[in-house]
Design a binder for these strands. Structure first.
Lengths: 148, 148
DNA sequence: AGAACTTATGTGTATATACTCATAAGTTCT
DNA sequence: AGAACTTATGAGTATATACACATAAGTTCT
């Protein structure tokens, strides 16, 4: 017997969470990077420096967890920061397997230089996505990130 | 005169749109890819195949625009699909500069195989992010993607 | 028609991302 | 203490991403 041709209704696909979350990330990243360009770091690096500023000294695993990033990805991102003198790392004093990462003076200066540019970008972002809504949304992301 | 140490209030940084949109994209991508793994395509490829199914034959520029993706990124993504026999492309008949991309039979089969898995993932996603809210959100993304 | 301009795409390069596998350090169990 | 297990990290590999630059085809202007 011949199979009936599948006639799938793809109408829902444009709402695909994978597609649209990636699409937003691409758009927002490009927007933020244009805004903070003069600080000579990119959007991801700004996030890393800000997280380091708050958490230092911090291990690869802990920082990756905080950023919802694979630890191998983070590790390589940190290598680039370190290459550029924005952070440094050393083996953990208590647990030698760990890599303890800290901001350098130069890293802190880059963060400070980028901050007002970032702030402007974030304010401008709120002209499109309501601030209250966005913050609720971020909370939801962070509450559920383990679920995924 | 000595400079007073900058004392920037970084409390807003955890709401950074760049950080959080990327964070969500990473989490959701990993979630969807685990779900559709058995279709032997990844989340991005599913989106590309679905878009191709709807728009074929389509040029690099038009497809990239639709997906909010840099055209050079899309071009390389399409190369991989083509390498795997999921789509093919030929020079435009009217405008020879164009690359006209179409799904192959194999590409359509992959899409059909992945679809129910995708659907399940999307339903499960809606258990966390309310469907109505998410769809409003997606509309907002797509309305404003040019702004960024 | 030929020059100047515009447009569609590809290439080089660099970062981001994450999976699998490897290794060394720490912990637990006997 | 030594074996077995666990944990923190790095390396190999592959895809995703996008900027700057290059090129070829199409269009417009004179």
């Amino acid at each position: 017997m011949l199979h009936k041709a599948k006639n799938i209704d793809y109408d829902e696909v444009p709402y695909c969470a994978c597609l649209n979350s990636r699409k937003l990330a691409r758009a927002v990243t490009s927007f933020f990077e244009r805004k903070i360009k003069h600080a000579e770091i990119n959007g991801n690096q700004f996030s890393l420096l800000a997280a380091l500023n708050r958490m230092q000294p911090v291990t690869v695993n802990r920082l990756a967890g905080q950023l919802g990033m694979d630890r191998t990805t983070l590790s390589r991102n940190v290598n680039l920061l370190e290459r550029d003198g924005l952070c440094d790392s050393q083996p953990g004093r208590e647990d030698k397997r760990q890599r303890e990462i800290s901001l350098t003076k130069k890293g802190k200066e880059s963060l400070e230089k980028a901050y007002p540019l970032w702030k402007e970008a974030q304010e401008e972002f709120y002209k499109i996505f309501d601030e209250i809504e966005w913050k609720k949304y971020v909370s939801k992301i962070n509450e559920n990130i383990e679920e995924f």
